[in-house]
Structures are given as structure tokens and as C-alpha cells.
Design a protein around this nucleic acid. Structure first.
Length: 468
DNA sequence: GCATGATCATGC
DNA sequence: GCATGATCATGC
């Protein structure tokens, strides 16, 4: 058994360039595209210790946990982690009474030996190779944020809300669902409601940054937090709120002039926030936003206190979405793992004024109930060839997709270059007899957004903030 | 003023 | 060229 971090790291390097098939001594991999258990192969055949499921790290004496994890080459030739790094299961009953440093997370995962293999859709698992190994320990700045993340998860357990935990609640450390749909729901200590089983995990976005910046060694991204010590007093979100509150009530046109921003560009609001935060580049490319998978959205509140526009999200492809199921759908995945930063502008007598920002992620119940209904109906329409309804008096093609009236959370509407900008259909449309249709995407209803913005603004009032 | 189809502007 | 975020346009 290996006794020190260094011994383990040195040994791990000998796996670089080897395929799982070459390493595997016990024939755990067949010729099929079967993932089997790649981690077990490394444990048994490479490090030569018996597979276990203890709560201690795999290499007890060295305190090192072993993780074998995939990364992929993107079309634009950059590398991404293929998935989140799933760590140990959360036992809600026992974790509730722990503190960060006595938690099962910290006990098992404070030092992780990462072995990255290159995943490729067309390759058998036995032929995929280990490309990098890296001994990972949390940096001071990451650890501050991770501790806060752990506390957010812990707090939900203490409040009897384990069933409402979502990956979007936190920045880098998340509680991700583990086990299939039919696996048993778990007890939690402060509520009778059973909660889905979840495991601690490092977000896919965090792993991608780690891979690129620490393992491969690509230049680091611009940071919003230039001095870590500010995070000792405030959380990341509080810091952002604090910095931006200085600009509250300033006219957008004025701010745009001051920071030399082209106000006509549709991304000008995101650029503006980046400048207000002192960034040279874009906010979506900042280190923290990339690692935490935070996306920026503009919200404009008009004079009457309403939000004029619904909020759009990426297009879906008809042929792909019909192959998905809700539990693993790209829509669900996006809304469970993404945190959004709403940048709120308020209309005044002569134009728009910067108001505030708001971090938000979709509550699991909204996602798995109402938004699921929108998704279900959409998929049903496509599968049945039931998309086109009639042509209205403006010569526009009206669809059967779920509209904004029938669902509290969201709807489906076109989004593309123009109406001739289409994706292929899996089945012919019943009425039009065509095999393609105008690109569409999922939207969030403006009223739903308004509910979020005004509710949270009330919360802020009680903490001394201002009303919209 | 809402509902909903259509389309613009940018970045990569 | 295309995906994406944001916004326009108009009948009811």
C-alpha cells in the first residue's frame, strides 16, 4: 500500500498513455461500449488494492482519494471535463450534525488524485487512455467558496429542506442526484418528506477550469475577486451585490458613455456589468463565472412595474429532444446546474436606469413539476407531427406548442434568424407535410421572472436594500 | 397591453 | 455560418 502523496503521484504517472484494456488484469471490460467500472480497474490492476466503499479516502495513510474521470475534445479544439466529479453520498441523517471539517465530504475528499482519460464517443472504453494525472488539493480561494457551498447544503438539511436541494444552489461544490429514478428516497432528520439521494460533487464547470488551468496549464482566466481576503467577510454573491449597489439608480446611457460601451449592441448590458465589476473582458469568461457555471441575463422592468419580454434560452433540436427523457434531458440539466445572474434595469421618465442584480437558480419543484409539463407537451407535439396549427392574419405560422398562458413557469416560442431558419423534424408535420420547422426554444414567462425579482427585492428590503 | 411569431446584433 | 441573448412588431 502506498503511504505518501508523492509515492502515489509518481506511480500514477506510469499509467499515462496506457489504455484501460492494457491496464485491466481481471477482465472487467468487455469489447462493448460498456463503462463498467474504470475506477475499479485502476484500483485493482494498477494500484493493486481491493475495491472498497469506505468513508475514508482510498489511500488511508496518505489521505488520498482516487478518482478516474473523463474529459473530451470540443469541436473548437478546447478541452472540457465530460462531467461533474461525483464524490461521496450524502447521508442526511448523519451529515446534519457535522461541521465542515468533520463532514464526510472533507474527511474523504480533501486530497484527490485525479486520473483523466480522454473520452470519445466512437471509442470502446477498453481503448480509451489515461492522459493526465494530477494531485489535487483545494486552493485557499476555492476552499473559502467551497466551505460556503457546504454550509448552504448543510443549512438546507437543518431546515428540513433536503428534498429541495439543487446543484444551482452552490458555486463549486454541489449536491448532485445519484442513483437512478427508481432508487429509494432518503430520510432527512428535520422533515418527514423523503428526499432524493444525492452525492457531493465538484461541478462540471469547476472541473473544466481545473483541467485547463492546473492540469493542462492554459493561461488563467481573469478573476473578479482580485484579493481573496474580501471573501472572509462576505460571500461571493454578497460581494457582487455590494460592488454593484454603488451604481444603483444611474442612467444606463450615462454609464455606457462613461465606460465607452456601444449601447445599441444587444450584449451591452452584460458588458456594462463586467465593467462595473472592474473586468477588462466579458463577465461570462471570468474565472468565477466559468467555474460556478453562472450565466448573465438582462431583465428590464418598465414604468408600470412589468417585465416586457420573456426570457429566452438555447434552441432545441427536434430530432435530439425526442430521443431524451426528462430526467436526463438537456433542459433539466441546464436548469439544475446553472446559476443565473439577473441584471435588472428599471425604466424611468427618460430611459433605463441600472437597478440591481440578483443571483437565482430554478427551484427543483418548479423544474420537475411545471417546467416538466412544458417539456412533455413540446416533445409530444414533435413526436406526433403536431406542430403547425394555422396561419394567422399576419401570415405567421401559429403552433400547438405550449404557450405562455397555460403554464406558470414557461413556454415554447420561435427563435432564429427568421422563420425560414429551421431544424429537421423526426416525423413529418401532419398539416404542412414538411420535414423541417422554424427553430424554437424554451422561454421563462415574464410574469414568472417578475415574481422572482419582486419577491427577492422584498427580502432585500428587510435587509436594508431598496425597493424596485 | 398582451400574446406570440419574427428577427436583430454579436461572438466565435 | 451558426448559436445565442435580446428585442421588435402587430392583431386582437
Amino acid at each position: 500500500m502506498y503511504k505518501t502523496k508523492q509515492e502515489i503521484l509518481v506511480k500514477s504517472k506510469k499509467a499515462i498513455g496506457k489504455s484501460f484494456g492494457e491496464i485491466d488484469l481481471y477482465n472487467r471490460l468487455s469489447n462493448y461500449k460498456n463503462k463498467g467500472n474504470l475506477g475499479q480497474i485502476i484500483e485493482e490492476s494498477f494500484f493493486e488494492y481491493a475495491v472498497n466503499s469506505r468513508s475514508e479516502p482510498d489511500f488511508i495513510e496518505a489521505g488520498v482519494e482516487l478518482k478516474v474521470t473523463p474529459f473530451k475534445l470540443n469541436k473548437n479544439r478546447t478541452y472540457s471535463s465530460k462531467e461533474r466529479l461525483v464524490l461521496n453520498m450524502i447521508n442526511y441523517m448523519t451529515e446534519g450534525v457535522k461541521s465542515f471539517y468533520t463532514s464526510s465530504f472533507w474527511n474523504k475528499n480533501s486530497i484527490i488524485l485525479l486520473m483523466f482519460y480522454l473520452y470519445d464517443f466512437e471509442t470502446f472504453y477498453k481503448d480509451m487512455k489515461i492522459e493526465y494525472t494530477y494531485l489535487f488539493e483545494f486552493s485557499d480561494e476555492d476552499l473559502i467558496i467551497i466551505k460556503k457551498d457546504w454550509e448552504i447544503i448543510h443549512d438546507k438539511i437543518l431546515k428540513g429542506l433536503a428534498h429541495e436541494i439543487s446543484e444551482g444552489d452552490t458555486m463549486y461544490l454541489a449536491a448532485c442526484r445519484k442513483g437512478n429514478k427508481n432508487s429509494k428516497l432518503r430520510q432527512q432528520p428535520f422533515s418527514a418528506v423523503l428526499a432524493p439521494s444525492r452525492a457531493y460533487s465538484l461541478k462540471g464547470s469547476f472541473m473544466t477550469s481545473l483541467l485547463n488551468e492546473k492540469v493542462i496549464g492554459i493561461k488563467s482566466k481573469e478573476k473578479i475577486i482580485k484579493d481573496v481576503s474580501v471573501l472572509k467577510e462576505k460571500s461571493f454573491e454578497e460581494y457582487i451585490y455590494c460592488v454593484l449597489s454603488r451604481y444603483k439608480g444611474q442612467k444606463v446611457e450615462h454609464l455606457n458613455n462613461q465606460f465607452r460601451i456601444n449601447g445599441k449592441a444587444k450584449n451591452s448590458n452584460a458588458v456594462l456589468v463586467a465593467r462595473l465589476l472592474g473586468l477588462e473582458g466579458s463577465i461570462s469568461k471570468s474565472s468565477e463565472f466559468l467555474k460556478a457555471n453562472i450565466k448573465v441575463k438582462t431583465v428590464r422592468v418598465n414604468k408600470t412595474g412589468n417585465i416586457k419580454e420573456h426570457m429566452s434560452f438555447p434552441n432545441f433540436q427536434y430530432k435530439k429532444i425526442v430521443e431524451e427523457n426528462w430526467e436526463t434531458s438537456s433542459l433539466r440539466e441546464m436548469f439544475e446546474t446553472t446559476k443565473w445572474l439577473f441584471v435588472i434595469f428599471k425604466e424611468g421618465n427618460d430611459g433605463y436606469f441600472f437597478n440591481s442584480v440578483l443571483f437565482w437558480n430554478m427551484p427543483i419543484s418548479d423544474l420537475d413539476n411545471e417546467y416538466k409539463e412544458v417539456w412533455d407537451k413540446t416533445v409530444k407535439c414533435i413526436k406526433k407531427g403536431n406542430i403547425y396549427n394555422f396561419t394567422n392574419t399576419r401570415n405567421q405560422r401559429v403552433t400547438y406548442f405550449p404557450n405562455a398562458n397555460e403554464n406558470r413557469v414557461g413556454h415554447v416560442r420561435p427563435k432564429g434568424k427568421n422563420s425560414k431558419d429551421t431544424y429537421e423534424l423526426p416525423v413529418e408535420d401532419n398539416k404542412l407535410k414538411v420535414m423541417e420547422y422554424t427553430k424554437q426554444c424554451f422561454w421563462l414567462n415574464n410574469k414568472y421572472i417578475l415574481g422572482i425579482v419582486s419577491k427577492r427585492n422584498l427580502d432585500k428590503v428587510s435587509r436594508g436594500g431598496d425597493k424596485l
